[in-house]
Amino acid sequence: MAAPNSAPPAQAASANSKRFLILFDFDETIIAENSDDAVVRAAPGQRLPDRLTAAYREGHYNEHMQRVLAYLAEQGVAEDAIRTALEKIPPTPGLTALFNFLRAHQQDYEAVVVSDANTYFIETWLRRFGARPLFRQVFTNPAGFDAAGRLVLRPFHAHGCARCPANMCKQVILRDYLARRREERGGLAFRRVLYVGDGANDVCPSLALGPGDVVFPRRDFPMHRLLEAAAGAGGAVSGGPLKAQVVPWSSGEDVVACLQTLVKER
């Protein structure tokens, strides 16, 4: 993904002084459901044909969604219908309070989205809810409408991680971003890295965090269940030990409570 546009000197200096990096998943973390499911409601009969659902292969969800979007185009589903379906998705409980906190403390927190959704879905929703300026960068699968009006989806990258889907490893994205930002910040690392997620693919980037960092798994979702199982087995998950502190959340206000304590650090 391309790096964000360069900021004016004063803004760049402010960005480079931020103490904390917070990363968000999108589906069922920022928004209250899976955006792919929401878009299917724009299809005829609000469902997919059996041939499409039967063709899904574990670990190849990006390929599946490429076929879904092609089907929507074949059925004459236009951009307006897709955008409307996305804009109707509500935020997760308490997410508005969390965003308001980050707006009030932009001098301390740098925010990024890391998601296996796609650029069109995420950018559309964030703009609709006025949240796009909160995020320095969005890492996700590229998607856009072609000249024929079809929404075309591509994989984010290739990688060698056996734990992650073929199109995206969030740990690779996180490590690359931290290395790049440290260089841009003149060698200054973030004091803490915070990761907010819900899904199984959010476990892998959590393994890149250190003892001073915090992982926020959404309570009773796959990420939380996997981390709880790992804790019961001595703290190890597939790929290595989890070093970060784990703070489960049900509402964005649970995350705010933790961020409020961190912002008081000096």
Rank of each mutant, 00 (worst) to 15 (best):
H159K: 04
T29I: 03
G160L: 02
D36A: 15
G144R: 14
V114S: 14
D80H: 13
D198N: 11
Q11D: 05
L98V: 07
Q171L: 07
D254E: 03
Y177I: 06
N167T: 07
R67I: 01
F145S: 00
V114R: 06
F121H: 14
V256I: 09
K170S: 06
A13T: 04
G197I: 06
A230V: 00
A10L: 07
R182W: 09
A15L: 08
R218Q: 07
Y56F: 15
V256W: 02
Q107E: 14
E33M: 12
L226E: 06
A208K: 04
K170M: 10
V256P: 11
V247R: 12
R103L: 07
R219Y: 14
A257L: 05
F101H: 14
P4T: 11
D108A: 09
R41P: 02
A111Y: 06
S115G: 08
T96N: 08
N5E: 15
N167S: 15
L52E: 09
Y61L: 01
G197D: 01
F20L: 11
L95K: 01
A55P: 07
D37V: 08
E74C: 03
V113K: 09
L21Y: 10
R163N: 09
A12R: 14
T29K: 09
C204F: 04
V255K: 00
R219P: 01
T124D: 12
V247D: 04
P248M: 11
V112T: 05
R191H: 12
L98Q: 00
P248L: 07
P91M: 14
A43P: 10
A111K: 09
K18M: 11
V203C: 00
A81R: 12
A42T: 03
L95V: 10
P222Y: 12
P248F: 00
Q260P: 02
P8D: 15
I82G: 02
G45A: 11
G160T: 12
R191Y: 11
A55V: 05
A104E: 03
V256T: 06
V246N: 01
D176C: 04
Y109V: 10
H105I: 05
G252Y: 03
V68E: 07
L207V: 03
Q11L: 09
C258Q: 15
P90Y: 03
F101R: 03
K88G: 13
G186P: 11
G232F: 05
R185D: 04
R57Y: 02
A70M: 08
I173Q: 07
V196N: 06
P91E: 11
A189G: 01
R175L: 13
F24W: 13
L23C: 15
S250N: 04
H159E: 00
Q171F: 01
T29C: 14
E183W: 08
G232H: 09
R19C: 06
V237A: 15
L151S: 04
P133E: 02
Q260L: 08
A233R: 12
